[in-house]
């Protein structure tokens, strides 16, 4: 605790100035670290937050503009379309009745096996014939990073409500039928 000087006025003043300088530097250092942290977090947030992913229908509409650039695409996995071998998984994702074929390299997260799970994939459009439940397509999506986007719906596993059927109303307006995996 800093009180008034006793006898050696000059020396105490020096000490006081030293303490004051150190405090000033400490305040400055803390401020710089905090401002840098805030700037970093805000920059990251602004860059990614507004458009974290494109839904399948948007990614197909914007295919010409996207070209071969890397982006994230989001859709629900059609369970009957999943096939995997030698570290490559192929499947189809759907959103708003738009379907994209996907060729994913790498191990999918554990929850990928859940029927109709929404996923966010990182990758790019690649030119190449593909067949989806909605018909033939001139491109497929090549991904090397998969994130499972689970919903805020929670249900007891004891009730045995795992279903291969799409979520209620999800494909009602679509012009195609999705085969149900009987396996």
């Amino acid at each position: 605790m800093d009180l008034t000087p006793r006898h050696e006025v000059e020396e105490t003043e020096d000490v006081r100035q030293l303490i004051h300088r150190r405090r000033r530097w400490a305040i400055l250092a803390i401020s710089v670290v905090l401002i840098a942290a805030l700037a970093f977090v805000t920059a990251q947030g602004l860059r990614n937050a507004t458009l974290f992913f494109r839904n399948v229908d948007e990614a197909i509409d914007q295919r010409a503009d996207l070209g071969t650039s890397r982006f994230r695409i989001q859709g629900r996995v059609i369970p009957s379309s999943v096939q995997g071998e030698a570290g490559v998984t192929t499947f189809q994702i759907v959103h708003e009745c738009a379907v994209a074929a996907v060729r994913h390299t790498g191990d999918p997260p554990e929850l990928f096996e859940s029927p109709w799970i929404p996923v966010v994939l990182e990758g790019r459009w690649v030119e190449g014939e593909s067949k989806t439940v909605a018909g033939a397509d001139s491109h497929y999506f090549r991904s090397d990073r998969m994130l499972v986007k689970h919903t805020n719906e929670y249900a007891s596993a004891n009730e045995g409500r795992v279903s291969e059927k799409p979520p209620a109303g999800f494909l009602d307006d679509c012009s195609f039928e999705v085969p149900v995996d009987s396996s």
Binding site: L38, V41, Q44, N48, T50, F52, E110, L147
Partner: peptide, 21 residues
């Protein structure tokens, strides 16, 4: 366990860490 990643700079995670800081 669920997403397959510890961290992503999405809006919720970014704003939460901003709140913390």
């Amino acid at each position: 366990v669920t997403w397959g990643t510890y961290w992503q700079w999405d809006a919720r995670l970014t704003t939460t860490v901003l709140l913390f800081v």
